[in-house]
Structure formats: structure tokens, C-alpha cells
Amino acid sequence: MTKIIGLTGGIGSGKTTVARMFMAHGIPVYIADEEAKKLMESDVIIKKVEKAFGKEILTNQKIDRAKLASIVFNKAEKLEELNKIIHPAVQKHFKNWLKNHNTVPFVIKEAAILFETGGHKQCDKVITVVAPQLLRIERVILRDKSDKNSVLDRINNQWTDEKKVLLSDFVIENIDLEKTTTQVSDILKVLNKI
């Protein structure tokens, strides 16, 4: 049976970079955030989000992600409401994806809020990617062209690294790419034995 290895980390930790390193080794990787973005373009999800957040959340009949972010990252209950719409759809999509990868020993499921949603309970092992907060903020500002306060809002809506590390089987400190690559290779050696 194919094992599920969870891969998580706070915003800007570099978990997608790490996911791509696993892909480079031929490991199938499911990137939950990318799939969630695609699912948010489906009519079913658009209707549910519109019902929950109102017509003003739409621009040209599509979900305006910036408007939605400004609402959910300032109010925990609104974020929870959005997660209740998106996460079941992502879970269903992942289960279907997994059926197409049932001949490999393990797959990686990359998800930003793996612990927050309880997704880690469906994983055989969990890898958490960490980096110093200032570096994470810097990376996100560069990547998303956002400001420090909006990055901090998103950080504050996620579990702390310390809390994630306690529940993780492996921890990758992603500061230096060369060292990160070595850590990925070391973890792969262990995973190939499970």
C-alpha cells in the first residue's frame, strides 16, 4: 500500500522548493495549495464561496482572491468558513489522485495547513520545513509583492514552527539550498526503507 508522507511548513518556509526537490527524485508530489487554486475556479466552489461571502467577492464571475484574502486573514471564523468549503474538495481530489499512484512505495502530500486541518492524521510520516521568520517574511514579500503586515496576518493564522516540529517525523531547516538538498536526500534514504 502506498504510504502518504505529509510535507508542511509555514508561509515562506520553502516547502514548495522542497516539494520540487522530491519531484526531481521521481517522487509523486501532490501540492494541495495549487490544486485548491484550480478547484476555486470550478462552478461548484464559486457558488459555495459566493453564498458564504456574498457577490462582492466575485470579479467577472470568478473568485477575487485578493478580496477573499483581505476578509479571511483578518477574521479566524471567516477563514474557518472558507476552509470548510475548500478542504473537503481538496481531500476528495487527493484521494482520486492517489488512486493513480498506488504502485509507488510512497507519495508526498504538500499542504500549508496540514496540522491545522488535521490532515497529518492521514499521513504515515510528516516532514516540516522551517526557516527564520524574518527570512520567511522577506521571501513572501518578494514572491507575492505583498507587505509585511499581510504576511504577518497569514503567519499568525498558522501554527507556530515549534508546535509543528513536535508532531513531525522529520524537520528540514531551509536556509541554505545546498544544505536543504542534502537534508532531502537523507530523508529519502530513510523513507525508501519504510
Rank of each mutant, 00 (worst) to 15 (best):
L82G: 15
H87R: 05
K78I: 01
I63P: 07
I137W: 03
E138H: 15
E162W: 06
V72P: 14
Y30K: 02
G6L: 06
M23S: 12
K62L: 14
P88I: 06
K51T: 14
A32K: 00
A89F: 00
D186T: 11
L177P: 14
D64A: 07
A36W: 01
K3V: 00
G9Y: 01
K47N: 13
I172K: 04
G6D: 01
A69H: 07
K125E: 06
H87M: 11
L7M: 09
A52G: 14
V44C: 11
I141R: 07
G12H: 03
I5K: 00
L39M: 08
V107Y: 00
E110Y: 02
K193E: 09
F53N: 06
V140H: 00
K38L: 04
H120W: 02
K99F: 10
L167P: 09
K78P: 11
S70L: 11
V190C: 08
V130K: 00
T2E: 02
P88D: 08
I86Y: 01
K3D: 03
R139S: 06
G14Q: 00
K62Y: 04
H101V: 12
E77C: 09
Q122I: 11
L79N: 15
G12A: 06
E81M: 12
A19V: 08
L166A: 12
P105E: 03
A89H: 08
F53R: 11
F53V: 03
K95W: 02
D176F: 05
V171Q: 04
K163N: 11
K164H: 05
K38T: 13
R139M: 12
A89I: 03
L114T: 12
P88N: 15
A69C: 14
F106Y: 13
F170R: 05
D169I: 07
M21S: 09
I85C: 09
I194T: 13
L39W: 08
P132W: 01
G10I: 06
K164D: 04
A36F: 02
K67V: 07
L98S: 06
N74T: 08
E56M: 05
H87P: 10
V104P: 05
M1N: 06
W159T: 10
V49E: 01
K75Q: 13
I63F: 06
R20D: 13
D169P: 08
K15E: 01
I4Y: 02
F170I: 09
G6H: 01
E41K: 13
I172E: 03
R65F: 11
F53D: 03
I175T: 11
D147L: 10
I11D: 08
V126K: 00
D43L: 05
S185M: 08
R139Q: 10
I108Q: 01
K121T: 13
N149D: 08
S185C: 09
G12Y: 00
F170N: 02
K193Y: 03
T59P: 07
V90T: 15
V126Q: 00
I45D: 06
L82C: 12
E81S: 15
K92M: 11
V184F: 02
K15T: 09
T16H: 06
N156C: 07
K37F: 06
S185W: 08
G14K: 01
K47A: 15
